[in-house]
Design a protein around this nucleic acid. Structure first.
Ligand SMILES: [Mn+2]
Ligand SMILES: [Mn+2]
Ligand SMILES: [Zn+2]
Ligand SMILES: [Zn+2]
Lengths: 147, 147
DNA sequence: CGCTTATTGACACAGGCTCTCAATAGCCGT
DNA sequence: ACGGCTATTGAGAGCCTGTGTCAATAAGCG
């Protein structure tokens, strides 16, 4: 029996480690906070939100940069010049984004465009398609009620 | 017969005008340059590229902001904090983006996800889907040859 | 062809993001 | 478990993108 609660490394943590990056407390905090947010977050927002430990703002930026590089986060341009980041699970997936409250939910590859579509695009463009993105925008269940 | 070459307002120019915005020389230059680039461009890049007239950098920023607002451009976050803009035609369309040289080509709505897919996403998520985005990434014809 | 006023360009300025560097803490080998 | 190597961190200075201000200009309209 484990004496103390074993800190189970999440799947994302493991991925970072596999790529040779050190699994540090600040990184864990940032990743967890971003994942639990379930929406696009700015570095400042995450920095304010992390309370368990004193994480420097520069480290938040550095980690977000790293996550985007590795594919665990998606960077988006925000009006006002401040970038936003969304947590992305390691698996291929797509997004459903609420246009009202900003909530994001992942949907799995079952909804991917048919292989035939990709072939058709290749035929029409002479591109050699390697990957795709697809997002759906609309109102989440909570935001459909009120005006 | 026209004595001088009539400057035909492009479809985008007309759209701006219809929305009550004035069709100025700087705006035309910026739009034309962005459209002809056929790729994501930063404000600085566009500013350097516009030679026909002396356009202020602030005006480039303002126009790009306007275009994004109206739907004639798509804003993207770039590594390094500088935002990039891609010209987007007024019609609904999707993108094929070269992962090597950055060239972007539009493909039309014929490749849209089937209506049934959108319905399935709605059923799976309880969202009310209003619109979607879909981009394909791969190598353009020119970039497939060499390594 | 003038009048009205949206738009421009220059420049000052704000704030997001990065760089530097000494201190800290993962990770590995023992 | 312990110690060493070095990636990583946090603080703060500094850079650079992007915005606000304002007088001058020009688009649109009668
Ligand atoms: Mn995702
Ligand atoms: Mn487009
Ligand atoms: Zn919502
Ligand atoms: Zn290419």
């Amino acid at each position: 029996m484990p004496r103390t609660a074993t800190i189970t490394p999440t799947e994302e943590d493991a991925r970072l480690q596999a790529l040779g990056y050190r699994l540090t407390a600040p990184r864990r905090a940032i990743i967890a906070t971003l994942r639990e947010a379930g929406r696009f977050c700015t570095a400042t927002q995450l920095h304010e939100r992390i309370t368990a430990r004193d994480v420097g703002l520069a480290s938040v930026y550095r980690t977000l940069e790293l996550l985007a590089e590795v594919g665990l986060a998606e960077r988006r341009a925000e009006v006002g010049g401040e970038a936003s980041f969304l947590y992305c699970s390691p698996r291929h997936h797509h997004h459903v984004i609420c246009t009202d409250c900003g909530t994001v939910r992942e949907i799995d590859a079952a909804f991917c465009p048919d292989e035939a579509v990709t072939r058709a695009v290749e035929a029409a463009t002479d591109f050699q398609i390697a990957r795709h993105t697809m997002d759906f925008h609309g109102l989440c269940a909570d935001c459909q009620g009120g005006g």
